[in-house]
Computed example of a mutant assay.
Amino acid sequence: MDDLIPPGPETEPPAADVLAQMAQGLLVSQTLVAAEDLDLFTFLSAKGAATVAEVAAGVGVDERPAEIVLTACAALGLVERDGAGFRNTPVADHYLVRGRPYFFGDYIRMLRDHAFTGWMRVTEAVRSNRPSRWTAEQREDIFTSENRAKLFWDGLYPLSAVTARALGEAVDLGGVTRLLDVGGGGAAFDIELCRRYPGLRATVYDLPHVCEHAAERIGAAGLSERVSPHPGDFFADEELPDGHDAILLSMIMHDWDEARNRELLGKCFRALPRGGLLVISELLVDDDRTGPLDAALMSLNMLVATWGRNYTAGEYGDWLRAAGFDDVRTVRFRAPGANGAVLARKP
């Protein structure tokens, strides 16, 4: 017993609040799910403001749960008091009202139906080094599944659109005339970037059923003459479509491992002309692997859902130079789907 460390001076224990908040994170996301499932924010937008009784009658629930949900949404900053009733805050009115241009409701439902099931088995993913989103009964790939693609791409559209606007402000694409969006999904980036840059034309290169979905979005945006779907498979096809002076990889490379990413960068290099620009838009992990939180959690989401992870700007730089690119640099910005872009040129 002589070798036991003697007790030190008593110190005040650190506050446990932060751990409680972390452990209860699910409660926040599911409050948002419940409110959106009820179309609460769309109802309040139409009414302007409503009492608990009016909300209960309008969304079809009893007054007790209506009051509880409204209180939680008020605490989250999504609704606020207006006399005897409640109304939407600006963020809810802009993003959570059905029919608005950047409606996030489909994103919330996509997470509910697609992502959260795997997260409830996250330890399984960590221990097995396999996506826990897959089950013994369901091993359908979200990218190739035609049945689930609309849920996935409709859900990602508002996140991508807001991120595209931030990218367009941070990275000057004024000199680009033809953009190839590899894995462009629902064409959110192409639509937003073409709106910002009148001289830009874009090609959405993705799987055939995804291109059909993109064509609907492009047509609805009135951009069919400037944005064109190009069906293909960027791994199965020997080469990428040529004739473009810039290539965009947005929220694509985090889906794949290093070998696949190096293969894709090689195809991008061959498809670009001399002086061509490559843009990688992602939630970049810090080079010292200590954060930031959004990139770190998205990386864990990739463990749950894919064979990839989120990478550092340094890793992308090494791969780009190995593929033959030069003039590699990183531009930082803030958006839901990216915190920066790694840019490179083909010499």
Results as ranks from 00 to 15, higher is better:
41 F>S: 04
87 R>P: 04
2 D>Y: 02
124 E>D: 14
39 D>M: 10
16 A>I: 15
68 I>Y: 01
191 I>Y: 02
109 R>Y: 05
67 E>H: 05
248 L>G: 05
320 L>A: 11
127 R>N: 07
161 A>T: 01
135 T>L: 06
261 N>W: 05
302 M>Y: 00
5 I>T: 09
192 E>S: 04
272 L>F: 09
46 A>T: 02
294 D>W: 03
224 S>G: 09
181 D>Y: 03
142 I>A: 07
307 W>Q: 13
273 P>D: 06
23 A>F: 04
133 R>H: 07
95 Y>A: 02
316 Y>N: 13
344 A>L: 09
234 F>T: 04
250 S>V: 03
307 W>N: 14
241 P>N: 01
121 R>D: 15
314 G>V: 06
97 V>I: 08
285 V>T: 13
85 G>H: 12
24 Q>N: 14
236 A>N: 06
193 L>T: 13
117 T>G: 11
321 R>A: 10
102 Y>E: 08
263 E>V: 00
14 P>S: 15
225 E>M: 01
46 A>M: 09
155 G>L: 09
178 R>D: 15
39 D>Q: 14
117 T>E: 09
96 L>N: 00
227 V>C: 13
82 D>P: 00
341 A>M: 08
7 P>L: 10
33 V>D: 12
49 A>K: 12
3 D>A: 14
177 T>L: 01
107 Y>C: 09
270 R>I: 02
275 G>F: 12
115 A>S: 12
230 H>L: 15
209 H>C: 08
314 G>A: 11
154 D>Y: 11
229 P>C: 13
152 F>R: 10
142 I>S: 08
91 V>G: 00
152 F>L: 13
197 Y>V: 11
317 G>T: 07
163 T>Q: 06
228 S>M: 14
148 R>Q: 00
270 R>A: 15
29 S>I: 04
223 L>F: 09
314 G>F: 06
154 D>R: 08
167 L>W: 07
328 V>Y: 05
337 G>N: 02
313 A>L: 02
303 L>S: 12
272 L>M: 02
181 D>I: 00
25 G>P: 04
62 D>C: 02
345 R>M: 08
45 S>I: 04
328 V>L: 05
145 S>C: 00
57 A>E: 09
155 G>M: 12
308 G>W: 01
227 V>A: 11
34 A>D: 14
54 E>W: 11
265 L>Y: 06
212 E>Y: 01
150 K>F: 04
98 R>A: 15
252 I>P: 01
158 P>W: 04
182 V>S: 05
16 A>P: 10
156 L>Y: 10
232 G>K: 07
82 D>M: 03
222 G>L: 07
20 A>C: 06
222 G>C: 09
128 S>C: 11
92 A>E: 12
27 L>N: 06
267 K>L: 01
230 H>D: 12
286 D>W: 12
142 I>H: 08
266 G>I: 00
100 R>K: 15
168 G>I: 04
290 T>H: 02
125 A>V: 09
